[in-house]
Amino acid sequence: MKNDPQPPTTKPEMSRTPAVIPRPLDSVALLGTKGEVEITHQGETYRLRRTRQGKLILTK
């Protein structure tokens, strides 16, 4: 008796739950009165800060 060939490999199905849409976060709530925050991402530390002109800069 021959073995039936394996079905082609397919990617796993995506979750059927609806995507969560992130809500906007006010920069003042994130940066606080100091105007900056450190963020750790994949073992690296980044700094997000507000400039004098009111723009945001993310640096490593």
Rank of each mutant, 00 (worst) to 15 (best):
residue 13 E to K: 15
residue 28 V to E: 10
residue 27 S to I: 12
residue 28 V to P: 00
residue 58 L to E: 04
residue 33 T to W: 01
residue 2 K to E: 15
residue 29 A to S: 01
residue 59 T to E: 09
residue 48 L to C: 06
residue 5 P to L: 05
residue 23 R to W: 05
residue 35 G to H: 13
residue 47 R to Y: 11
residue 57 I to K: 09
residue 49 R to L: 13
residue 51 T to A: 03
residue 60 K to C: 07
residue 24 P to G: 07
residue 51 T to H: 03
residue 21 I to Q: 04
residue 46 Y to D: 03
residue 42 Q to R: 09
residue 54 G to V: 09
residue 45 T to C: 06
residue 59 T to V: 08
residue 11 K to R: 13
residue 48 L to N: 02
residue 9 T to K: 14
residue 60 K to Q: 11
residue 48 L to S: 04
residue 44 E to S: 15
residue 60 K to M: 10
residue 7 P to S: 06
residue 57 I to S: 08
residue 56 L to T: 05
residue 29 A to K: 01
residue 16 R to E: 11
residue 7 P to V: 03
residue 23 R to F: 06
residue 29 A to Y: 00
residue 15 S to G: 06
residue 53 Q to E: 12
residue 25 L to R: 07
residue 31 L to G: 07
residue 31 L to K: 03
residue 35 G to F: 07
residue 21 I to N: 04
residue 11 K to I: 11
residue 55 K to Q: 13
residue 30 L to M: 00
residue 22 P to L: 02
residue 8 P to E: 10
residue 15 S to Q: 01
residue 12 P to A: 11
residue 43 G to W: 10
residue 35 G to S: 11
residue 39 I to T: 04
residue 21 I to C: 02
residue 5 P to G: 05
residue 41 H to R: 15
residue 39 I to Q: 01
residue 12 P to V: 10
residue 4 D to S: 13
residue 29 A to M: 00
residue 16 R to F: 09
residue 24 P to F: 04
residue 33 T to C: 00
residue 25 L to Q: 05
residue 36 E to T: 06
residue 14 M to C: 07
residue 52 R to Q: 00
residue 37 V to A: 00
residue 21 I to A: 02
